[in-house]
Design a protein around this nucleic acid. Sequence first.
RNA 1: CGAGGUGUAGCGCAGGGGCCAGCGCGCACGGUUCGGGACCGUGAGGCCGUGGGUUCAAAUCCCACCACCUCGACCA
Length: 586
Amino acid sequence: MKLSKLVGERIKENPSGASLKSHILLLRAGYIKQVSAGIFSLLPPAQRVNLKIQNIIREEMNAIGGQEVLFPVVMPRELWEMSGRYTSIKDEMVRFKDRTGHDMVLGMTHEEASVHMALNTIKSHDQLPFMIYQIQTKFRDEARPRGGLIRVREFTMKDAYSFHTSQEDLENYYKKVFDAYVRIYKRIGFKKFIAVKSDTGMMGGKVADEFMAVTDVGEDRLVICPHCSYSSNMEVAVSVKAQNDGQIAGELEEVFTGNAHTIEDVCVLLETDPAHTAKAVCFKTETDGKLVVVFLRGDYEVNEIKLQKLVRSELLPVDVEEFGLSGGNIGCLNLHLPEGSYVFFDETLKGLENFVTGANKKDFHLKNVSASRDLKDVEFVDVSFVKEGDHCAFCGHELKLTRGIEIGNIFQLGTKYTQSMGMKVTMPDGTTKEPIMGCYGIGVGRSLASIVEEKADEKGLVWPMTIAPWHVHFCPLRMDNENVSAVADEIYKKMLDACIEVLFDDRNVSVGIKLTDSELMGLPIRVIISPKTLANGQAEVTLRESGEQLFINLSDLISELKVLIQDEIDEIEEYAKSPKITYSEN
RNA sequence: CGAGGUGUAGCGCAGGGGCCAGCGCGCACGGUUCGGGACCGUGAGGCCGUGGGUUCAAAUCCCACCACCUCGACCA
């Protein structure tokens, strides 16, 4: 490809409104162009990366028996009503009417379509297990797209669906997919990625793992044990909470605290610290409007996802006065709640002595409360977030908190969709059974952006050889020089003949522009010729990632480049074969 | 959906009732340079986000809307 004809432009100044490295560099290097909020066009270089990532995914999916299919983007309402998701999913799904007035939706995931494909065509246990997958555009009307390709509304996703006759068979296959995912991310070039336990959310099902590109700019908070294999999304992470010190409490005492309602104010007033308070956090259930009160140690936060599982409902904010409570003075003793209310005591209160809590009376708090004395009959549950300093629930080591971008996920779905859509297969004993499903997603564009986050430097993009849009950036300096331009044309032709993927900067522009553009675009190998190098019959070869520079005789250039390219690819493939990340039950 | 912000040339921005709407980069043409975003000259490029109002006069003031960005809520 000749750079003079490449669609897109390199820009010098940082685009306004972009703050993430991947967003800024992909814009500046001419890889992406925004069309609307969360909607982007991929320019030729980005599409080449996109296709290479897709091919890696395709190879690994095929290698574990996946059958590639293509589901429709537009689906009728009825298909989504079969699973109940036409109503359970809200504004995130785009709906519209076709010309006859029929309700249609844009596909944001394809569980329904995958069951539909198998429905009535798969009839016997003998045809299971199988896995079908597609690589296709999804549209999710995200409330707030952000970060360039990190969080978008329209995106390319690989989604796969497997069908099994037993939970055991699903679990075995699930591990295979897990390993395939590890290989995929390694082949793409990721070094900093991990698998974490996650919430199953609207997909339903029990077990779910997410693959995370570890980065400070990630949207998800992660909990990792540096000692054992435990790693989890903060949403569902468990831990041994910070120890309570067990100091002896004195007599219960009611104290006037007036306008001090927040934990901070109360602590200042009573000269204590948040770790010696029990705060109340209140919600209302979405389903039936019941009050939910959670007590937890003042320095912890409520994990609403854990809480939602306990009350089996979404949670809404609540005005506690409406339930006759005194906001800011709710405490865990002598609490009188309306019939049917939920009250939970978080495990952070277990063993807590000598603490402060609301007195359930306007303007008053209780001092010297003791869990062992005053909360004797209480059952403690885990509804709090893991906090810095907590310890691993499995090995006791201190946990680390970090952040990540979700670049893929795998779910054990169960029978939610086969059951609701009536898919059954005949078993050997003549009975029928609803197949048990797994589903497995990878965000292609998000993976592309995440690898940029991991590898790009202050000069620009840095592509791993396996997904680079072109392997070689051929950059002759002084194209006004007749010798240079003649030799350049010749070398370019030889590169093409040798099937080297090359971007040829054929422009007659200044050296600075050529060099900075090449660094910005991030191709792994840069080949320079100039009057200087030609005087020695050489080309200068620079490796983008390491900056390593070598001079190669023109006569050996093509063969040397092929070796450099192949070595780099081999190294990544070799790395992909040794999975350091393995599936863990915890 | 909540809070804040921004819309002026392809990009980054200035101008905030009155003359012809500007600067830098980029683009086109000519010339000189050229191994780290060179320089000189000439030129093209604007519904000042949209609609309504105030005024003799609006890019500028007022109202509404739209779009986009940031933070939060939400997120298979």
